[in-house]
């Protein structure tokens, strides 16, 4: 028996999936969730075999929800209209349903899911997130998890990012938050006009920089409004000069 979770903020949209799934032998719906927070809880608790996931949902969207999970489940996306999401789906061959979808189309998606191994399914979801996170809709905020709570950081609240082993530490006025991503991921995701990678281990919001002091040979130190001192490498200094136009 495959255990299925449905996450969608519209009750009627969940109803369609429920109805279609009732005709499927071997599938059992264990829970329905109305938003991403409920979704995270339910996934961590039940470890479902398959998740039907809407993209546009309150507070955190489907992609952001997945980012907050330690382990990616197998996912079939259901969305009405989202150019970037669809591009991401296509690039990673994850199956997706465009609302409204027919029962035949739904059955095809189930067949595709059954044809692939569980590890393959999960790997696809993970790869998809890397692409989806680069879409313009995701550029405005970063979703992190602190303990059991979810924190949404608007990008303009970010002071600087610091590499921290396998994590990146996101520094804001409220403190630092860890996210399981790489520096080069953030370098790509963040708007290059406002964030500059000044060092192998640092990305800085240029509006935070108050002073640039020389330090040793070829190196500099950036002093931020918050008082933090950030090392600037030779190539980082060149990039910074380019963005600032000096």
């Amino acid at each position: 028996m495959k255990r299925v979770l449905i996450i969608d903020d519209e009750p009627l949209a969940r109803m369609v999936l429920l109805e279609y799934l009732q005709g499927m032998p071997g599938f059992e719906v264990i829970q329905e969730c109305g938003d991403g927070f409920e979704g995270i809880k339910a996934i961590n608790q039940h470890k479902p075999d398959l998740v039907f996931l809407d993209v546009q949902m309150p507070k955190i969207n489907g992609f952001e929800m997945l980012e907050l999970l330690e382990q990616q489940p197998a996912v079939i996306f259901a969305t009405a209209f989202d150019e970037y999401a669809i591009k991401a789906f296509e690039a990673h061959a994850v199956d997706y349903l465009l609302k409204p979808f027919s029962k035949e189309r739904f059955e095809k998606a189930i067949e595709k899911y059954l044809a692939q191994s569980a590890t393959q399914n999960k790997k696809q979801t993970a790869e998809l997130l890397e692409t989806a996170a680069l879409s313009p809709a995701q550029h405005e905020r970063i979703v992190v998890k602190t303990g059991t709570k979810v924190k949404i950081i608007p990008v303009h609240d970010v002071l600087y990012l610091e590499a921290d082993d396998d994590y990146v530490s996101i520094h804001t006025a409220e403190g630092a938050f860890l996210k399981n991503k790489t520096m080069s991921f953030f370098e790509q995701m963040l708007d290059a006009r406002h964030f500059v990678r000044v060092h192998r281990s640092y990305i800085v919001s240029i509006s935070e920089i108050t002073r640039l002091d020389p330090y040793e040979k070829d190196a500099h130190i950036a002093i931020l409004k918050s008082g933090a001192k950030i090392p600037v490498s030779k190539s980082g200094y060149a990039r910074l000069k380019q963005v600032l136009g000096i």
Binding site: L12, A13, A80, K99
Partner: peptide, 18 residues
């Protein structure tokens, strides 16, 4: 808004059943 239109059609699709 295509989003609105498609989601409305999806809701209708659900209601037709029951």
């Amino acid at each position: 808004q295509p989003h609105f239109l498609f989601n409305s059609l999806n809701s209708i699709n659900a209601l037709i059943g029951f």
